[in-house]
Amino acid sequence: MAGADLKLLGTDYQIWKKKQRREAGQYYLLCLVGIFCFFAIWQIAVTAGLANERLLPSPLQVFETIIEKFYQKEPDGNTMLVNICASLQVALSGFLLAVVIGIPLGLVMGWFRLAEAFFRPIFELVRPVPPIAWIPLVVVWFGIGLQAKALIIFFSAFVPCVINSYTGIQLTNRTYINVARTFGASETEIFRKVGIPSSLPMVFAGVRVALGNSWSTLVAAEMLAATAGLGYMIQQGRTLARPDLVIAGMVVIGAIGAVLSGILSYIEKRLIKGQKNESN
């Protein structure tokens, strides 16, 4: 008798899934339209003379500069690809280091009371120091190479990784913990099978902030006498009064930032199915 009702459930679910896929399509279309409008307005503003072309080059001109930079070393001495690789290397090493150290630290701190007592005060002391303030010390310790720059990025990415993992795992629903406990799970098993998965959405939100921080601290880190990198290219553009080069650098930084964030979203989607409220 109840069997018939139970069958219905499945088809409802399939229909709902289909509808969701269609809505996702519409969403991405609107994203593209938004980006297009942004550049169109910019272009119109410049061609119509609303903005001075010497100070604000048009998007088409910036686009030209970007393409040009892919095969031309002038004026900063590196092709675009070299600059991008240099920046990615700095930003990603700092960022990954922060993720690898920060997340486990936050999770352990949020779950085990003794670990919290030990680490929390140190962390609270370090936390309010702005990443840039580390620059002089870092230069003394490590000079001005990759290590030094990566370390500054690390400081900017570390804090959100720790805080979000810490808060995320502390918010674990007590009932879920009790379910595992009544099945006879050990404390470490509960940490692994309940605490960590339930904290993942928060952890990922932290990683997202960390990634944004890493990428935006890049320009500051590359002020440390770099010889390549997008931040360095922007610096050169400023010195040489080439706003198109500056904006080209900004656009590339923005675009790569978006790509990285997209990659992160992809990983996030694969890893934390079921915990995002996708429906509303």
């Binding site: 879920y176 006879g184 199915k273 079921g274």
Partner: peptide, 26 residues
């Protein structure tokens, strides 16, 4: 022991099948 709690307690990060497997895995 199995305990059906008063409040909803299906693990949101596991599929229906994985939820059923959880206790047996433990």
């Amino acid at each position: 022991i199995s305990f059906v709690f008063q409040e909803p307690s299906a693990f949101p990060w596991l599929t229906v099948r994985e939820n059923l497997e959880f206790g047996l895995g433990v």
